[in-house]
């Protein structure tokens, strides 16, 4: 996955979480609440997961790099 994809995923994760945040702060009608939860909870979970995955991967890479520097391979 390229860098652009990661940025796209981050943007999507934020965008899909906005309705949930809106629902928390505004008092929306029941039908809208249900629609928001049913549609946006799975999607935002997915994109947040993708962002987390990318972060974990980067971390792993960094650790590897550090290992190389300090153990002197």
């Amino acid at each position: 996955m390229g860098k652009e994809n990661e940025i796209k995923n981050k943007i999507l994760a934020i965008v899909t979480s906005i309705p949930l945040l809106l629902g928390i702060f505004l008092n929306l009608p029941l039908a809208v609440t249900i629609a928001i939860l049913v549609v946006f909870v799975p999607i935002s979970t997915y994109y947040v997961g993708l962002v987390l995955m990318a972060r974990a991967k980067n971390k792993e890479d960094e650790e590897k790099r550090k290992k190389i520097t300090f153990t002197g391979y």
């Binding site: 029941l30 249900i34 939860l37 909870v41």
Partner: peptide, 16 residues
């Protein structure tokens, strides 16, 4: 009786 307004936080907490 369906309440007209229902708190999203409450439902979200229930799901979690």
């Amino acid at each position: 009786y369906y309440p007209v307004n229902f708190n999203l936080i409450y439902i979200l907490l229930e799901i979690i």
